[in-house]
Design a protein around this nucleic acid. Structure first.
Lengths: 119, 119
DNA sequence: TTGTATAGTATTAAAAAAGGTACTGTAATG
DNA sequence: CATTACAGTACCTTTTTTAATACTATACAA
């Protein structure tokens, strides 16, 4: 990892939200309702337990996500967004909007290409 | 890559700016001045030619960066941000701000820990 | 007694990303 | 004549990320 100070702020921010599953985990947790481990699994049908664990640990480490263990059997663990984590909301929002526009643009272009090909 | 529609917009947006060097390449190009290949290399002292080429190609593919070849010898190629690429500006800006705050927070916390340890 | 649900861990394998080094061709410079 | 600048490409290795599978413990239900 380059130690370039200019890059740092971007990288720091991106590290917190990048990862194959982090954006969607955050998306769900930002809805506000705490979610249990298996609830998250069901919301991300293709994630493996290992990957979910790893990403949640990273998010917890950065105090973006809070992990609460209820000492019961069978075990219960709830994950929720922290106040600090909520500050990511504008970033996610901006990304989502840009992504949507980007997709639309791509699709328009593809449609145009198909048209000129059949002309 | 998960084909989850909820994740798509995030992933699409992130793909355009994520990569070990993309944010800093974009940062420099967003200054407005077109940059030559080797100028970029000098600005990113640790990047290899190969990595710079690959990232620039990806950015070009997405029409975020424009590549102009001047048929001279020695060759001259200029990279610049496109109008479309400029639309990434708010994302980068938001990320940069959040990253700066996140770093500050981390440093404050470390300082606090050191203090309590020496108490 | 077998199976289910819970929230994971451990181990190994595969795939993707990044890095390192050498090499191209042409012209100008020392 | 050797070196430098330019903008890369080709080939190979290392590192990182992701995936797959099996396993843990406990309690409850059929």
């Amino acid at each position: 990892m380059q130690k370039n100070p200019v890059q740092c702020q971007f990288v720091v921010a991106l590290d917190s939200i990048v990862g194959k599953w982090k954006p969607i985990i955050l998306y769900h947790l930002l809805q506000g309702k705490p979610l249990r481990f298996n609830e998250l699994r069901r919301l991300l049908p293709d994630i493996t337990q290992r990957m979910l664990t790893l990403h949640l640990r990273e998010l917890e480490e950065e105090e973006i996500v809070k992990r609460v263990i209820y000492p019961q059997i069978p075990p219960k663990v709830e994950y929720s967004i922290t106040e600090y984590g909520k500050s990511l909301s504008p970033i996610l929002e901006t990304l989502h909007q840009w992504g949507a526009a980007h997709l639309e643009r791509k699709q328009l272009k593809e449609a145009k290409n198909e048209q000129t090909e059949t002309d």
